[in-house]
Design a protein around this nucleic acid. Sequence first.
DNA 1: ATCATGACTAATG
DNA 2: CCATTAGCCATGA
Length: 96
Amino acid sequence: MTPFARKVYKIVLSIPIGQVRSYKWIASKAGRPAAARSVGQILKQNPYPLFVPCHRVVKANGGLGGYRWGKKTKQRLLELEKEISKAILITKKGKR
DNA sequence: ATCATGACTAATG
DNA sequence: CCATTAGCCATGA
């Protein structure tokens, strides 16, 4: 585990449910604005599968980006979380 | 130090 | 959507 990798995971962990960030954005936050590609390298190692929400990291142009277990899976997780966050909003609204 | 590898980016077709 | 090209960079051998 390198210092850069640690930063990347920490940042990815901070992405809220139902939201996404680009590899470039992560790279900048980690202090290496031009290391988007390296961010991908780090994420594919994914030491904590299903704990680090690496599926919330997408391409800068809006594309899906890659995923260790297939883009299809990534897409499904994102749509699922989108629904979940929507449900959370409804809950908050009705709760008062 | 050098070299190869990619879940990137931007531009082009 | 896909493929190619060039630039970019952390990482590991």
